[in-house]
Amino acid sequence: MSLHPPPEHEHAEHTPGAAGYLLVWLALVVLATVTLFASRAVTGGWGLMVAFAIASAKAALVVAFFMHLAGGRPIHRIAFSVAMAFLVLLVIGVLADVGTRSVASSYVDEAGLPVE
C-alpha cells in the first residue's frame, strides 16, 4: 500500500528537447560574448554588476533547462534554492562588512601599506 500518491512521471515529459537544448546553448554563447564586450565597454563598479547579472542569467538557464530544474519536482527546487539562499546570505554578509569599513582605509597610506 502506498502512503503517497504516485509520482506523475514529470521528468520524461518536461524536457526541452534537442531543439530546446540548442536554443539554450545559443543563448549561453550570445550572453558570454555580450559579457566579453561589456567588460571592455563598461568599467568600474558597474562593469562588475553587469558581468555578475549576465553570469546569473547564464547560470539560471543552465539550472532550469540543462539540469531540468524547471520541469523537475518542487522538492528538488526547494533543496537547491535553500543552498542558493545561504550562498547569497554569505556573500551579502561579507560585502556588507567590507563595503562599510570607511575607517579601515585610513589605516593604509597611498601605497596601500599599513600606517601604525
Binding site: 558570454a32 559579457t35 566579453l36 567588460s39 571592455r40 568599467t43 568600474g44 562593469g47 562588475l48 558581468a51 555578475f52 549576465i54 553570469a55 547564464k58 547560470a59 543552465v62 539550472v63 540543462f66 539540469m67
Partner: peptide
C-alpha cells in the same frame, strides 16, 4: 553524472568574469 557536469559549467560561469574580466 550530467547534473555534476553542469555544476562544473556553472562554477566556471562565475569564475570567468571574476578572474579574467574585472576592469
Amino acid at each position: 553524472g550530467g547534473l555534476y557536469w553542469h555544476l562544473v559549467d556553472l562554477v566556471w560561469i562565475f569564475l570567468w568574469p571574476l578572474l579574467y574580466l574585472i576592469r
